[in-house]
Design a protein around this nucleic acid. Structure first.
Lengths: 361, 361
DNA sequence: GAGAGCTAGTTAAGACGCTGTACTAACAAA
DNA sequence: TTTGTTAGTACAGCGTCTTAACTAGCTCTC
């Protein structure tokens, strides 16, 4: 570690504070970071020159002494391009502000392309988005299904026919911009953590065609022994259950994926449907209990169709979770819907860029 | 972050390398840390002056160029005092080398003392150990039951009647040495990680009077939302099971704790005993599957009586775990006995000190 | 066996980043 | 107007790293 890394770290501290706490005076930044006012002034001057922050006039609160000048992050000065590959059939993308708001949205049908062809399609799609940006783009984030390592190499994504593909490196080269790739469910967790105000220790379950999970532990993303963390969808939860796409039986995905839930409630009257959903909720709660107990998670978030998830299912899952874990761990536990909905993965992809390029998350 | 923090980090890098890789030349240290030879020489000189490292003569391998001088960590130059409070009835302690070997062992019956009285007893016990040390002591590590926060404050340890007790701060003050306190099962995980060669992502289950767990994720200890990570012993695993000490029913502890296992096999012939143990193993595997899937753990370690754990129970648990998780996550998974046995908690307590004082873990 | 070539380690000078101290600027209260 | 307080800046100094250039000590080659 070099002194200049310390500099980068301090710079990130300042940006992080401005990002989460909003406009702040140099003196307050100094107090918050426990650096001196001199150092902060220096850092702020650099950031001003880069256009990343701006002075916003005098702080309203009138106290004795010279009034403080507020410094704020220019979250609209730069943009991020984010791509969500979680859907088989369509590539979704957006140009986003640094605060995770989509400025431009695009989507592109994936007509069965896989392998290198899909990489080509993705490259063109990203180029379209980059040229649609109205501000300089600081980087590109991609949420992809499959196992993705820390460097953005897709170890394995069977449905895309990608194996050991250095996607981030390829795209960085082709787009001449920093590109970061992560698993889609992990992206979702990052998105909820940074933009959705989720707890430091939490798990996001993404329910769609399949079931994925992203885990944050003590404020950082879990990677796992072979970068395959979050494969909760293919944990067996029903003995001798339905056949799963993975070839095994009774995976969580076979009862919790959106199609499975729709089938389970099809043609039932509301009360019976709720009972069916509650049953799935209890199964989910039983599966989550050991995870919550072992990690002392503060929150579990559900992302997916609210009409199916946010009702009897959620209530039953929380009840089961509370029943099956220690009071000490269960007492503060929340089980709620994710706040970002459709855009979770895009937001998370943006956070990948934000974290890597500016040190903010 | 200041330049001197970068310095401390680099110093820790050097020590970490010497600790795990053994004696190394300055030039090789430079290559390993990607610092320059100049910087490494400077750091090594400081460490030589402190007596933490020593020169060990010329490297045997004959190559061209000036022969390299090996620099090695003097793991016997300093000692660590470690205390294990996990047993209700007896306080176990040791003076340890930096490599985790117990040089002196002591134990002290705890005649029902609790609360402040127990703190007093612990203080005296630690003093005895400190004076039994044959080298300068760099710090004291304590593995305590209950919920312990990052600063060494015992949030809650019912059996010891400790609530919100700043144990590390009190002992640091009384002993005039750095004292670090952590939960006993978390200590065990640290011990196995550093001295037992465990994987970066792993879980240690401590089976004794009760059942505890410590989790390492991507090389760091899991703390959890309210510092209560690892409470796997009180996750429900049997519906309408036996009554547990915690007042609930069917906790993992009711089937996996050592007394429960002994009861389960009492009076059975070997084959029947194995079947009973395999049943517990299957229950354990079922409970662990979601944890292993969500975190992509590389290893699960069992610490406790080998005659009960290391047989049908372990085999059945591994089989169940493999059956109930995705092949991708299960393929590299190991489920084995912990290597440190009796001394796990002591070793972990030593690691607390090693990590905090020297940056080694 | 003498020089060439290589590697280990040291010395010296310079760049960078933070701090402490001392300053100016701009306000409120007396 | 004076005093006290807080915000922000200028400057010297220290700590830490790097590069460049050296010495030391070995092997290989002719």
């Amino acid at each position: 570690m070099l002194p200049e890394h310390a500099r980068a770290h301090n710079r990130a501290l300042v940006l992080q504070h401005l990002f989460h706490e909003g406009p702040t005076s140099r003196a307050d930044l100094a107090r918050a970071t426990s650096l001196t006012r001199v150092t902060i002034s220096d850092l702020v001057n650099v950031l001003l020159a880069e256009g990343l922050v701006e002075e916003l006039g005098v702080q309203p609160g009138r106290r004795v002494g010279k009034p403080a000048i507020l410094v704020g992050m220019r979250t609209d000065a730069y943009q991020i391009v984010a791509v969500d590959l979680s859907d088989d059939a369509v590539m979704r993308g957006a140009v986003m502000t640094l605060t995770g708001e989509a400025v431009v949205r695009r989507s592109l049908p994936v007509a069965g392309q896989v392998g290198d062809e899909l990489v080509g399609l993705l490259t063109r799609f990203a180029r379209t988005l980059i040229s649609a940006a109205t501000r300089p783009v600081i980087g590109v984030g991609v949420g992809s299904p499959g196992v993705v390592d820390d460097s953005g190499r897709v170890i394995e994504a069977p449905n895309r026919q990608w194996t050991d593909l250095p996607l981030a490196a390829i795209l960085t080269d082709r787009l001449a911009l920093p590109v970061h790739v992560a698993n889609d469910a992990n992206s979702a967790a990052l998105g909820e953590y940074t933009y959705g105000g989720a707890a430091d220790s939490m798990l996001v379950l993404t329910v769609g065609q399949g079931v994925g999970a992203g885990v944050m532990v003590d404020g950082s993303r879990v990677h796992g022994a072979v970068d395959a963390a979050g494969e909760l969808g293919h944990v067996t939860v029903v003995d001798d259950g339905e056949l799963c796409a993975c070839g095994r039986r009774g995976c969580l995905e076979t009862v919790l994926a959106a199609p499975a839930l729709r089938r389970a409630v099809a043609g039932l009257d509301p009360a019976a449907a709720d009972e069916a959903l509650a049953g799935v909720g209890r199964t989910l709660g039983t599966a989550l209990a050991p995870v919550v107990g072992a990690l002392n998670l503060g929150e579990v978030l559900l992302s997916g169709p609210a009409d199916l998830l946010d009702g009897a299912l959620r209530t039953a899952a929380l009840q089961t979770l509370t029943d099956r874990t220690m009071p000490a761990t269960a007492v503060g536990l929340r089980l709620r819907m994710a706040t970002l909905d459709e855009d979770v993965v895009l937001a998370g992809a943006a956070v990948l860029v934000l974290a890597a390029q500016l040190g903010v998350s």
